[in-house]
Nucleic acid binder design. Sequence first.
RNA 1: ACGCCUGUAGCUCAGCAGGAUAGAGCGAUGGAUUCCUAAUCCAUAGGUCGCCGGUUCGAAUCCGGCCAGGCGUACCA
Length: 652
Amino acid sequence: MERKHRTMIELKNILKERILQILGPKYPISMHDLDISYPPDIQMGDLALSFPFKLAKTLKQSPRTIAQQMAPLLCSLEHIHKVEIAGGGYINLFLSRDRFFLNQLEKSEETSLSADETKVIVEHTSINPNKAAHIGHLRNSCLGDTLVRCQQYKGEQVEVQNYIDDTGVQVADVVFGFLEIEKKNLKEIQKIKGRFDHYCWDLYTQTTRFLRDNPEAQDRKADILKNIELGKKPESDVALYVSRQILKAHLRTMKRLGVSYDLLACESDIIILKFWESAFNLLKDKNAAYFVDSGKHKGCWVIKLEGKAEQEKILVRSNHTVTYVGKDIAYQLWKFGLLDADFFYEPFIQQNSQTVWITSSHKTHHKKDFGKASRVYNVIDARQAYPQQVVTQGLKSLKFKEQAEKSVHFSYEMVALSPKSLQELGYNVSEEEQDKDFLEVSGRKGLGIKADDLMDRLEQKALNEVEQRNSDWPAPKKAQTATDIACGALRYFMLKFARNSIIVFDFEDVLSFEGETGPYLQYTLVRINSIFNKLGIKKHAEKESLRSDILSQSLSLNSLPANEQDDYWDLVLHGSQLDEEVLHSTRTLEFLHLAKYTFNLCQKFNAYYHKYSVIQEKDEKIRNLRILIIGYIYNILQKALDLMGIPQPKQM
RNA sequence: ACGCCUGUAGCUCAGCAGGAUAGAGCGAUGGAUUCCUAAUCCAUAGGUCGCCGGUUCGAAUCCGGCCAGGCGUACCA
């Protein structure tokens, strides 16, 4: 009986099983050898088998000879209409094109992926709530949000958390600035007009400078930090106000990118609810943490790093305060449901139709079930690899082996600034800095590009482009389209690089809407939309009914002109690989695969679009086939853009 | 000093669980607008895959060494 495949992944699995059945009894071949890849050129075949190379040694025959013996046996494979030997010993398979395409069209709404976990937590964004978000934070959120979308697409239940360090040193700095430099009380702070996060951006820089020039003020700052932790007024009230205001600003910024969260987990609640005490008890019980009574760490509680002789990391300082890593171990334990402590929750804001929850230290009437994940991703930049390793070590030392393995530091490199872009921003670049390839973004120094400023600039540029092309549109439509394009441009930009590639920020690159960019992808979708519009089809239901009309007729790609057949087939084949790319991206945590796949699909489509007209085509069979392929690509493209969080304007 | 990462076209980057002729965008040059929107498409030029050695039928990809750059190794986060 014929087995239907929903996607290329499934077809490959079906083929692998069958090949193993056929060749297994005669040759020493395993599932592992049976990797099915793609030939470099569609003329050479649709799928490629390279296992003859792997068998050459054991069989003491040339790969080509082996391929020649095997090829005839594979001719009977379902879905395959031709087998060829190529190169030094490849076996290339040609699919039955009509059958494959019809199968794809029938099953286009399904995926072949499935969940592996009971619950996945992704923590991302986690910006210190003391200043405006900058481009480095945007990279974090774009990567994190794409991970979330891909995991959901795969079928996982995903919970998105954003960690709010509302009692940390950075918040204390700004509180110091307000109280000691500006001499403002809470009421006066509340009266500040304009973008509060941008105000604090400057104040933070000013404070850093002040503290550098006035070392004696450090005592007062330490005092502030302590009072924030202890909940003493007025410092703690100011800290709370500042951190909540900035948090709201961050959420607004991220909303512009289509990024949202399920839970905002606050460090202040971790402290009040004594998460650390619970974790500390566990660590002490199992001798995972121990007290040091001599040497440079005298008086501290530390944890040992596995495999690294003499390496220990401080969890509790000699003044009895807990380090960030210590609190993070407690938080990580809680995420896995391993801690004998829990938060309370209350709604923080409504975003679209979704409630964003925040932790609370007071009992509330809301019954929520956050945490208890079976896998956790922490989206944190590469410079924090070491503390992240300590967090995982905490789990390991407590013998939570499985959880340690499923604690993933989703690491990515920073966004840096070129000396050139710094000059564009009006900074004085020193000679020493001039010679560097890039300079690190520094919130402390105020060195960086604020996320909102960049978004504003992108939107302005997009608006100019929209004006040029569609001057007759109503203003709100122009504005919305510009917003969509700006978001698409930024999100694609953040995804197109490998994680461990440092992005040296350049305005020209980000502001580009041509070539390998988000707007290129959006434009491709707009073009397809436009064809449907001209065909008089605007609604999804109309598209579906046209599709089923066409599908009810007997169709064959052979009806297409000879030169078109391969171009058409190339689109079909490429389009079928979305799930494979999502899986690949999710496994490697490299979403550039998905990005580049989508870009590639658009390139192929745009070339096709240019060569073959749908509306002008007189031959009904050909026209129908073209309608099918553009609808097919449209669906795939929509899914791909959704996964990357790239908005889909109807026109542009 | 140790640990991790990076070095591929003029520039920015893919490709690295070994596999067919090393790709894309930008930039450069030359073309396409009786058009389903040129935010597009087509063509041309451009490479010692940092260097040396090793493993292999086969190395940009794996291993070792060297060179260059970055990041990290806080009682910061």
